[in-house]
C-alpha cells in the first residue's frame, strides 16, 4: 500500500507552472551564488574592493545573496498566488457554467 499525505492536497492545476518557475528562479540564484564562489577563487583580491559606503565587495555581495534570496522568494510567491487565483477563477466560472447547464437541462 502506498503512502498518502498527512493532510489530503486537492488537485493543483498551477503545479506545472510553479515547478517551471521554481526551476528558473533556482537556476538564476544558483548562478548568482556560483559567481560569488568564482570571484573568490579567480580574483580574491577584488573582494577587498570598496564598492559602497566604505564596504567592500565581499560584504556587499554577501548581504546581497541574503537579500536577493528574500526578494526572489517574494516574487515567486506573488507569481504563484496570481496563477493559483487565475485557475481558481477559471474553475469557479467553469463550475458556474456547469451548474447553469444543469439548471437548463
Amino acid at each position: 500500500m502506498l503512502h498518502e499525505p498527512a493532510t489530503p492536497a486537492g488537485k493543483d492545476p498551477a503545479s506545472p507552472y510553479k515547478t517551471r518557475l521554481g526551476i528558473w528562479m533556482f537556476v538564476f540564484y544558483s548562478l548568482f551564488y556560483a559567481s560569488f564562489v568564482a570571484i573568490n577563487l579567480l580574483s580574491p583580491l577584488s573582494m577587498a574592493t570598496i564598492v559602497f559606503a566604505g564596504l567592500n565587495l565581499a560584504t556587499v555581495y554577501g548581504f546581497a545573496l541574503i537579500i536577493v534570496a528574500l526578494i526572489e522568494a517574494l516574487i515567486y510567491d506573488g507569481m504563484c498566488r496570481k496563477k493559483e487565483a487565475e485557475f481558481a477563477k477559471a474553475e469557479k466560472s467553469k463550475g458556474g457554467k456547469t451548474r447553469s447547464k444543469k439548471g437548463k437541462a
Binding site: G22, M25, F26, Y29, S30, Y33, L65, A69, A73
Partner: peptide, 9 residues
C-alpha cells in the same frame, strides 16, 4: 541561507 532557495523553489 542560500540553501533555503533549493528548499523553496
Amino acid at each position: 541561507l542560500a540553501g533555503w532557495i533549493v528548499a523553496l523553489f
